[in-house]
Design a protein around this nucleic acid. Sequence first.
DNA 1: CATGAATGAGGATTCATTCAT
DNA 2: TATGAATGAATCCTCATTCAT
Lengths: 202, 202, 202, 202
Amino acid sequence: MTEDKKQNIIDAAIQVFSKHGYERGTVSEIANQANIAKGSFYHYYNSKEEIVYDLFKMVFDKFLDSWNTIIEKDISPDKKVELLIDRSFDDIIEMLEEKNVTSLILIFEIMFFLYRKSLKTGKENVIEKYFLKYYDILKPIFEEGQEADIFRQDIDPSYLAYLFFSMVDGFGLHFMMQKDNFDAEKSRKYLKAILLEGLIQK
Amino acid sequence: MTEDKKQNIIDAAIQVFSKHGYERGTVSEIANQANIAKGSFYHYYNSKEEIVYDLFKMVFDKFLDSWNTIIEKDISPDKKVELLIDRSFDDIIEMLEEKNVTSLILIFEIMFFLYRKSLKTGKENVIEKYFLKYYDILKPIFEEGQEADIFRQDIDPSYLAYLFFSMVDGFGLHFMMQKDNFDAEKSRKYLKAILLEGLIQK
Amino acid sequence: MTEDKKQNIIDAAIQVFSKHGYERGTVSEIANQANIAKGSFYHYYNSKEEIVYDLFKMVFDKFLDSWNTIIEKDISPDKKVELLIDRSFDDIIEMLEEKNVTSLILIFEIMFFLYRKSLKTGKENVIEKYFLKYYDILKPIFEEGQEADIFRQDIDPSYLAYLFFSMVDGFGLHFMMQKDNFDAEKSRKYLKAILLEGLIQK
Amino acid sequence: MTEDKKQNIIDAAIQVFSKHGYERGTVSEIANQANIAKGSFYHYYNSKEEIVYDLFKMVFDKFLDSWNTIIEKDISPDKKVELLIDRSFDDIIEMLEEKNVTSLILIFEIMFFLYRKSLKTGKENVIEKYFLKYYDILKPIFEEGQEADIFRQDIDPSYLAYLFFSMVDGFGLHFMMQKDNFDAEKSRKYLKAILLEGLIQK
DNA sequence: CATGAATGAGGATTCATTCAT
DNA sequence: TATGAATGAATCCTCATTCAT
């Protein structure tokens, strides 16, 4: 029940931060958006900063779950990779549509905020940790693919996972900026083509 | 000369923003760092925001120049692509070293700041424009490579340029977060291997 | 019984206020310390301020009782004065030890709080009243001592009581600040010596 | 010149804190009283707390100076002590008159504030230090008096200074509360009588 | 051009108090 | 009685920007 309220506030925070960015988004506006009093925000979070961690976890866990449903499928590893690209692509598209509260730009900003935080405080970098998690769930796919002679065997599967994810993310970044200049479906098709080709065993 | 002073301020701003981020970096600290009075800042820039544009231009033009020196070389297109990856990689490494004032994280943040700005004001997205510039100088390489039967011909060269750049950028993003977990030289080698393989004509 | 609960809350309040001072001590922390809910505090006290009066009374009545046991003894007036100094001294020492919840500093702060309150509201100064009570129970000792030719007769016994108490209090104030610089037992001895000498009839 | 402005702010702060106490006195009201903008306060002081130290120093140095003028006089030590009591008494009276900005209660409160601060932070107790200073300038008087066979010789002169000051302060504390119940001049006379008698060599 | 004092709007946070359950 | 979520006024502090010198 308390969790419902928290979720309500997180949703509000996502909206506000999506609109203005973390620094420019105010607790007042979040409270407003969540239909609570300014002071009530502090019943659920000790500070403006604290909510970022919840927000981050929520978003990044959602991705994790989303990917896991693919990874658990009973299909070939290369098909899984293809589906993962598709899923990422769909997520990107969805987040770029205004109706969706979780904006892509916010996710990037949160990543940088948390990264900077860890640099300053010396505390653990939660982003780094989550990325490692992502790589870890991708890794078995590449291992399986290498064993099946589908994926190239000259690259350590950890690096395959890491580079694969890098590239998909990089695509998201540029597509965000260029969605008016490049066709989405073409982008998807070509991204898949290049990535798969780069990974396939000749 | 005024341009010298401006450069002085830009350098200071890069240092300050690198350290704290744009929002948290203050005009006071920039003035301090530049050894001028706070008020003097406003002789050169009308606002804190204005300097971001100069800063952005400076950094992104430097990249443009850096890449152009490669593109103008008299070597094969695939070699050019390889050198471009190397150059990007070297830049990333350099920026991640503390001595360099231009921090990688700042560049990403500036991109997001300007992107958000354009979203809010509806004004032109300078990032989008610059990225298009980047794609444009890459495009001839891919065209040349396609004509020479080196690069795959099933993908529009504009898209090749755009996806190539996306992937290199994505790599920078993840490498920044993971530099303690993945070996730099291995990363470079594998990145090249995957990207080139993905682009090459079979 | 309600009084038990109240006492429980007062004890908690003393702990909290001792630690942080009245202004900085919060109702939340008091409730916490008393193992009740924040809201329950208001079943027993109408406001944070109200508890100060109870707290004050409790502490100051304890002093009154403590002194009365001495005054009622069947000993000479000068001996009584000596014992009163000793008792005060012991109380001061005890309050300065950390284990004791009633800190000396808190007592002074409460005095000032209530004094200021009376200045602002024009309502009766409870501190003034209690001090008068203290003087009043001391007065008979001095009267008795004057009649017995022990204490000096050139000073009104009311003033003797008032000045005696002032000086003992002043000692507490300075000893609190200087407990690391002046030896307790020497202080006690000398305080007695000076005070008694100053009061004795030559 | 900056010092003038600072003094202006200190004066305002004394007024405001005298009226409401330190915790309840607001930076806004200080700024108002000083006829400056709220933000300007922070050009001169980094925090509300910081000004307390200046304020404390100003007040306590003034006392120091005031006492020194007596100590430097070419008169007998017992006469000096008498004058010191008179001076303290006059200061107390003056501070209790409303027209004077430096209120007595504020001085006590500052003492407690700083004492508590030192307890919490473990940093040096400036009050303790200043009191030691006070004792130190009194000490030579008592030494001189002991040598001249005027003051009692059974008490260490440091303790004489410390106890003398304690008692005068204690008197201030009680007189503040009781000024309506006890005559000022009688109080002065009796205080002197007791204190001097207590100190004199028989 | 240079300075830095002055401004004041704005934002995070605290906390005594209320009240529905 | 007991609870603790909700409130919102109040407060400290920040900082981009202005402007008189």
